[in-house]
Design a protein around this nucleic acid. Structure first.
Lengths: 242, 242
DNA sequence: TGCAGAAATTGGTTGGACCATTGGACCACT
DNA sequence: AGTGGTCCAATGGTCCAACCAATTTCTGCA
């Protein structure tokens, strides 16, 4: 490791400076998600700050989901970092889980429709082929398992977000998606939800392949509507917490 | 073998416990936003943990925007906390370049349209009156200053998000909005942008007052389109894809 | 009474110590 | 070769006792 990539911290506003130093360090070392950061003790020594201050900064990063700490093992990068990141702490306060979930679905409905439309506008033939590939895999999994497979379904959607040309779609929806999954699996124990949404995956693909933005948007809206219906169906049981 | 038959065992989780204890404390004391929390030293003593652990928990809360720490003064509650809060930390890899700005506008287009539509669906007469009030103030500011006033404009939009009934709209768009303003003011020095968007504020309001979701959505889209045009005018020949 | 300076309060930082977990090295036995 | 056991160094988690820096509150003099 290049020692010069970790210059000492200068003055007050310590922890902010530590965060910035960490950003430049990660950039300088070209650390990629999954890789391990230097130990807290080494960072403290290199930055000429105390270990607690380093820990404070890492705690912030951990709260932002940028980093994962494993006792006895190390601290690992979880996502790419860039100097001018935009941190967006979303907090769903008040109300029970059902309300929060419906709120995330309203956001997702807006974004999913827009992403599908943009995708239909901008998809190259190669892009369309890729999406069709994901769709085939998903439909195959559906037939073998006799139900929706979360993973393959998610891959299909991700492909659409990617082709939309705007990475923000994937980032925002991914956050909602994770929340949604935690809810379905933990309190409810349901694993094969989303049955009703299945046919709309192909119709979305068809509108994209036909380069029909408005059609893609409409089909995406129908898909989200089925998920909303599923959610409303289980509403009575969702009044508890952990 | 079924992987779920051997879940990980529960291990020590001090700081999580501290967070939960803090939540119950805030509820028990009925602390409201703006009020001061006990000092770190007192919390440490009461919870029978070290001050460092308390600080770790408070650092997390600060990162979530739940709390604000002022050296020499104290730690203050910034938002309501409830036991069933859901956090989704979202970090957007943004930049101060043209492409990033256009990407945030695509997100904003989707959300702004949806929020306007939901607002038209759900607005009570009192809500409509409030929005009209904000609109009047904005138009008044426009005439006196002979140009858009960012602050009053923003208030108008925020009212719409609030009436939509989904706080996520405001939270997400606020982040985009901030990024957008930094771009207009810092690298460009422009202050009276958005001239072209002015008339659409009233048309949006009219569609909301008429309880016409689709109309409100269309007008919101027109508004964002004018902003996109403004942006393109600054950078006429920029390619979109990364 | 007014206000400048001292004192107390509070979050921020430091350095050092110890604990709990992890993962690799080494070894004995099969 | 493989299995399990033991040990040990590395690493994050917690704790403690100070001191620093910003802020607020109190005090005493003019």
């Amino acid at each position: 490791m290049d020692q010069n990539s970790l210059p000492p911290i200068q003055t007050t506003a310590r922890d902010d400076a530590v965060l910035k130093a960490l950003v430049s360090f990660v950039r300088a070392e070209a650390l990629r998600p999954g890789e391990r950061l230097p130990t807290e003790r080494i960072l403290a020594e290199r930055l000429k700050v105390s270990r607690n201050t380093v820990r404070e900064a890492l705690t912030r990063w951990e709260g932002l989901g940028l980093v994962e700490r494993r006792q006895g093992s190390g601290t690992f990068l979880k996502a790419a970092v860039s100097p001018d990141m935009l941190h967006l702490p979303l907090t769903l306060a008040g109300g029970n889980d059902f309300t929060s979930l419906m709120q995330t679905l309203e956001i997702r409905r807006a974004l999913e429709a827009e992403a599908a439309a943009l995708c239909a506008e901008r998809a190259s033939p190669a892009d369309i082929a890729e999406i069709e590939g994901k769709l085939d895999i998903m439909e195959q999994a559906f037939r073998t398992l006799d139900g929706m497979s979360s993973e393959e379904d998610w891959e299909f959607h991700q492909a659409i977000y990617r082709v939309s040309g705007n990475p923000l779609f994937e980032q925002i929806i991914a956050a909602m998606h994770e929340l949604f999954h935690r809810f379905w699996e933990h309190p409810l124990g349901v694993r094969d939800f989303g049955h009703a949404s299945f046919p709309y995956h192909r119709t979305i693909y068809e509108r994209i392949a036909a380069r029909d933005p408005q059609g893609a948007r409409d089909e995406a809206l129908k898909l989200i509507a089925t998920v909303e219906d599923d959610l409303k169906r289980v509403r009575p049981n969702s009044n508890f917490r952990t």
